[in-house]
Nucleic acid binder design. Sequence first.
RNA 1: GGGGGAAUGUCCCGAGCGGCAAAGGGGGCGGACUGUAAAUCCGCUGGCUAAGCCUUCGUAGGUUCGAGUCCUACUUCCCCCA
Length: 420
Amino acid sequence: MSTTFKPKSDFLRVLIERGYVHQCSDFEGLDAKAKAGEATTYIGFDATAKSLHVGSLVQIMMLRWLQKTGNKPIPLMGGGTTMVGDPSGRDESRKVLTPADIEANKAGIRSVFVKFLTFGDGATDAVMVDNAEWLLKLNYVEFLREVGRHFSVNRMLSMDSVRMRIEREQELSFLEFNYMCLQSYDFVELHKRYGIVLQMGGSDQWGNIVSGIDLGRRMGTGQLYALTSPLLTTASGAKMGKTAAGAVWLNADMLSPYDYWQFWRNTEDGDVGRFLKLFTELPLDEIARLEALGGSEINEAKKILANEATGLLHGREAAERAAETARKTFEEGVAADTLPSIEVPRAEIDAGYGVLGAFVAAGLVASNGEARRQVKGGGLRVNDAPVTDERAVITAADLNADGAVKLSLGRKRHVLLRPR
RNA sequence: GGGGGAAUGUCCCGAGCGGCAAAGGGGGCGGACUGUAAAUCCGCUGGCUAAGCCUUCGUAGGUUCGAGUCCUACUUCCCCCA
């Protein structure tokens, strides 16, 4: 990244200051466009799952800043390109998704953007577009004559995404080989339809984006721009976005706001400052202050990170609820009644409810066998008392003042069991 | 079209003379230490009504007291020759 470059536009200034920029094809040119409010921009999101996960959050935040600094953002659903599959950054071919899967995935993904962007008909209002609209109608021979002629296979073979596969002697199907052409074509088509001049994406998208700029020049779009964000890893080198339970999904029905809050709360020390810049909208001097906190005080910064990030996605109220649940659970050690809970027929509790079964029913362990192993390892607790006997039973006497029993797996995962 | 290889614990990689619930790693989970962090150390990582029983090594058969291991066919993938 150019260090001498002094942006005049708010857009580039913010993105550079906050650490969103990895590469840009032309800082000065893009800066002028952004300053004039003409930097209409798109980012493509493939519909490979029912929800996006935190890995896409950097991209979403970039669109949000773009809008806040007076330009028009266009999230593009890859309804068409998902049918092909992007080989970038992948060792193996993606599974081919059925059109029905793709439709379902698109619906799930759309719901997230509404929370980060303002949609409408105004000059800087966001518009949701789906490349299925034009890609699925393409006529093969026509496409080859109008678009395919501009692609050099020699050059495509030299691109990272392709070369890696070839060098490792991993198969790259013709289908995937075409992904780049389609993405390039999207860029040109979006320029025609919406006057888009910039495409952003993760650093692995650089090749695809630049190839779109090239295609645009040959097809007369005028100058287009590329801007990519750095690939995010945690300070200890792990890929961003995995937790105990799996991916950190953005849709609330796949990961509860509480768990989402916990994800941010458990950020490594070394990541706090970077994440505050990327995933919250706090002013930089405030972030600098938080980042400087030493020792266990850094935990205050982590709570703020969790509150802010959760607030952006799930709303202020949900964030506060999550924070409150966490405070009670971890700092007071009481069972917050907002913890996840399961219900068990009163009669079963009166008869004595087996601990192993209770933990399985709560979804904390997958089987009685796993529960037994956890008992041996001292990982299960009932009302904060370690379970030492796998034959122990939960009875009415275990109900606390709120009429619930607190089941815990490890220090962090708790479920309330209530009689019904 | 011809020839040669490979598929292992449903997270991944990977060893496996005919006695195997199957080495080892990664990842994950739990414990200790901490600050709900990182690093480190330790334990666990098929199911069950559990000193026993059941289900697992691409699929289907076969040989054998006994098959992940040997044989046959099939499926999928890879490599070489044409």
